[in-house]
Amino acid sequence: MARRAPLDSATDCNGFAPLAGKHLLGIEGLDRPCVEALLERADAFADLPPRARLDHLNGLTVFTVFFENSTRTRVSFDLAARKIGASVVNVPISTSSIKKGESLLDTALTLNAMHPDILVMRHPNAGAALLLANYVDAAVVNAGDGRHEHPTQALLDALTIRRRLGRIEGLNITICGDITNSRVARSNIHLLSILGANLRLVAPPTLVPPQISAMGVECYHDMAAGLAGADIVMLLRLQQERMQGAETPSQREYFHLYGLTAEKLALAKAEALIMHPGPMNRGVEISSELADDVERSLITAQVEIGVAVRMACLESLGAPLLGRAQ
């Protein structure tokens, strides 16, 4: 556990480096003090005025390399890096030699030769971020690797909850949707467990791994049972192809059984809040009315907090690099 920054001022960057390793590849393996230090720091950043610019990572270069389409995550990292003073290069993949069959490692070596300080990567294959980390000098941030992890999404979810409810310990949090194929679910299960939440999953058996109890969570197939007493309902995106007879029979059956509606939400606590990592399928995971309910939905807050969380993550990886350079 590295030194903790004085938290009275987000503009002070003295030795903030809670990520003991050189990379942020996943939540699994992080400890509670490390996670809480990151959240504290992000919390301070979230309180900065929207136009604030910091110089903590001046001189560092962040590359974002997304092998899967992404708008919100990529923009969020881009903005976070700029706000904390780093230069940003968004490496376009869809128009580059990657499409011509260059391997991930060749791409890594090419990018490495340009000496990025931090590489933010999303890739469709689990483990790709670890592979990259083994071959480049830069610190690697995993922005999603296949079905494995998406650590910054989990951190921003946790901070969103904390800022709204003041704590995470002891909350009943229900995650509902496609658990099997979701990296967001995996990272959130790890993180919310570390932070002491009572976690429940709700999904049809075809969308939840049979070994899920090994993760220390309760699993329900009946949404009503899974929602009872919930403080937070976290919905996951269901991909179109999974609703057309492959893993669930149809979109309308999924919405009937697992789509969040006002009636179903009434089974949770009276003030229960709704979260979704986006992009949403309205009328599949969630009714349109609820998605737009500013009293109950934290969905836009999640996006807003995401920038602050990524600032904290980039800083914790980048600040030690600056220390070395000086």
Binding site: E28, A126, G127, D145, G146, R147, H148, E149, R183, R186, P209, P210, Q211, I212, A214, M215
Partner: peptide
Amino acid sequence: GEMHEGEHSMRLGLRG
């Protein structure tokens, strides 16, 4: 499928 289906494939996010 990428590896044996079990707790490890679940944690690693690899298809079992």
